[in-house]
Nucleic acid binder design. Structure first.
Lengths: 185, 185
DNA sequence: CATAGATTTTAACCACGGTTAATGATTCCT
DNA sequence: AGGAATCATTAACCGTGGTTAAAATCTATG
C-alpha cells in the first residue's frame, strides 16, 4: 500500500488488551483507525442479540466508521480485540480538514477508500455467487494464517453461517475431494 | 448528491437502446459512468454460465469498473440496458489526471467513492444478516418502483436466489402476515 | 386472431444449512 | 489436579431455497 502521507499524519496511539473494545459509535470517536499490531473483529449485533462479523483486522488494515443511518438503525457495530492490539486513531473531522487543504493527502485518501471499496466488492461477490462451502474454501486458500488465530465461532459468523454449519462443512471438505462437482467420468 | 464539479466535467455522452451492452472491460473503456436516464443492470457471469446481478442503475446513479484482478479471474462483468439509456462517460485516466491537480475535484471524488462504499456496506450487511425473504421485503419497502420495471428473473438474481425461489417467497409473504415472528399472543 | 416466445407459477424432490441438545476437547483458574 | 467455562463436534429434526420439469400467463409479431 502507498498512503504515505496519510500514515505520516500523527494520530493518537491506542493500546488495547485482548477482550477490550474500541468504541466507534459516539461522534467524538468517529475516526479512521490504522492497525499497527494485533487482531480485531468488526461485527454487528442485531436486536435479537445475534452477532455477525463484518471483517477481521490484521496489521496494516484500516477501518473507519462509515456513517450510514440505515445501518445504524437496524444494528449496532463494534470492534473487539482478539489479541493485544495497537491502533493509530485519526478523527474524521481532523482528517477532513487536512484533505480539504492538501492535494496529495486528498489523493492518498482516494486511493485508500478505493481500496476499501474493492474489498467490499469482493465480499459482495462472494455472498452473491458462492455457497457457504465455497466461501470457506476460498478463505482457506487466501488466508490460511487467519484460521489458526480465530475461533470456529467467529469464523462461521464471518462466513455468514453458524458454527455448527461450519463444522459440518469442514468434515465434508476433508472427506470429499474438493471440486467433486467435476467428477464426470 | 453534491459532486458538483465532477458533474460539470465534460464527458462523452453515450446513447444505448434496450438490450444493448455498455462495454467496460477493455482498458480504453475503464471509465466512470453517470446515468442520466434509463435503467441498466450490472451483472457477473460465471464460468458455468450463471448470471448474478450486482446492482440496478437508475438515473443519477454512478458506476465504474473497479479493477480487481481477483474478480476478473473468477467472473466477467457486464452492463446491460433494460431500457433506452443515456450515460456520460468519463475515462478514469482523464479523471485521475484531473484529481491529481484539482483539490476541489479530489474532494468531490472522495465524497463520491465514500458514497459508493456505503452502498456496498449496506449490501454486505443484507447478505450477512438477512434471509432471502427479508432481503426481498426490504427491497419492496425501499424501492417499490424498481419491482415494476424489472423481471422476476433479474430481481431474483439480484437478491441472490433463483426465480423459482422468489416466486415462492412472494406467495408466502402475501399469504402470511409480514413479521409473523413477533406474533406472541 | 393465432402462434411462438418469453416470463411466471406450481409441484415434487433434494441438498444445504439452522436449531437444539448432548457429548468431547481445551483452556483457564485458585 | 479438580472444576468451570469456553469451544468444537456430532446427531436428529426441520425450514429455506435449488433443481427440474410441466402448466399457466403474458407479449409479441405476422
Amino acid at each position: 500500500m502507498k498512503f504515505h502521507k496519510l500514515l505520516r499524519l500523527e494520530g493518537v496511539s491506542v493500546e488495547k488488551d485482548k477482550g477490550e473494545h474500541v468504541f466507534m459509535q459516539s461522534d467524538s470517536d468517529k475516526s479512521l483507525y490504522f492497525v499497527q499490531s494485533g487482531l480485531l473483529k468488526a461485527y454487528y449485533t442485531t436486536e435479537d442479540g445475534k452477532e455477525y462479523i463484518k471483517s477481521f483486522l490484521l496489521p496494516n488494515d484500516i477501518i473507519g466508521s462509515l456513517s450510514s443511518s440505515y445501518l445504524e438503525e437496524c444494528s449496532s457495530f463494534s470492534l473487539l480485540c482478539l489479541e493485544p492490539t495497537t491502533l493509530v486513531k485519526m478523527p474524521f473531522r481532523r482528517l477532513y480538514e487536512y484533505t480539504k487543504g492538501d492535494l496529495e493527502l486528498a489523493n492518498n485518501m482516494i486511493d485508500l477508500i478505493l481500496h476499501l471499496a474493492i474489498k467490499k466488492e469482493k465480499r459482495e461477490y462472494e455472498f452473491l455467487c458462492l455457497s457457504a462451502e465455497e466461501r470457506f474454501c476460498m478463505l482457506v486458500k487466501t488466508s490460511p494464517s487467519l484460521l489458526e488465530k480465530v475461533t470456529q465461532n467467529d469464523l462461521a459468523r464471518y462466513l455468514g453461517i453458524t458454527p455448527v454449519g461450519l463444522s459440518r462443512i469442514k468434515k465434508r471438505t476433508h472427506t470429499r475431494p474438493i471440486n467433486a462437482k467435476q467428477t464426470a467420468l
